[in-house]
Nucleic acid binder design. Structure first.
Length: 193
DNA sequence: CTCGGGATGCGT
DNA sequence: CGCATCCCGAGG
């Protein structure tokens, strides 16, 4: 990953609404290898998504939407292709993309990036990912079809996808064991555990 | 209003 | 394993 991606190239390859308006487990796996782009204060930051988790709506006991529609989670109940950013443990932000039709309340958590452009910090884990690429709560409910915060496709070599249980959801009963964490096999930027 | 807990990360 | 640090959601 030694390319210099231009904004022109990235915008041309920006993912469409219909990409997100599909089965959440499929979207999660297809997000692997894609480029997360965030431009703030004229700084264009780009990272390659290497680890994600799927949250499957109100019946998924690990999903925030399982408590029903609240002020915090209402974006999950909205249309696909929007960001869901929340503060966790008082100090870290987590970044999700909303999937499927309005009302399904499903999302994909972005857990780790491979640095591509203007990313200096480690991104192994969702809290460090947002810190490294400059995402905070001001980017909650942001349309990912915008010109400054979006995800882009690009050509890449084939890779294998590893499927594991999600991290930090032991409270979710049977849902804690489902294989809804996906990451690129042998990638150095995937979080440990 | 109070209160308990959390889709984390780091140091011991 | 403890802890930082604060928003959110439930309940009175």
């Amino acid at each position: 990953m030694n390319h210099e991606f231009t904004k022109r190239f990235l915008l041309k390859n920006r993912l469409s609404r219909s990409f997100y308006d599909r089965d959440t487990q499929l979207v999660a796996q297809e997000l692997l290898g894609k480029l997360l782009v965030c431009e703030r204060d004229s700084m264009l930051r780009v990272g390659r998504i290497v680890e994600v988790e799927a949250y499957l709506g109100p019946h998924d006991k690990a999903a925030h939407s399982c408590k029903g529609l609240t002020p915090r989670t209402k974006v999950m109940f909205g249309p696909p292709g929007f960001s869901y950013v929340y503060l966790i443990y008082g100090m870290y932000h987590c970044m999700n993309v909303v999937t499927e039709k309005e009302g399904h309340a499903s999302a994909v958590l972005l857990r780790a990036l491979e640095p591509v452009q203007n990313i200096e910090l480690r991104t192994q884990g969702p809290g460090l990912l947002t810190k490294a690429i400059g995402i905070d709560k001001s980017l909650n409910e942001h349309d990912l079809l915008s010109d400054s915060f979006f995800i882009a496709n690009h050509d890449h070599d084939a890779f294998q996808i590893v499927k594991r249980p999600r991290i930090g959801v032991d409270y979710a009963g049977e849902w804690a064991q489902k294989l809804l964490r996906f990451y690129i096999k042998n990638n150095n930027y995937v979080s440990k555990k």
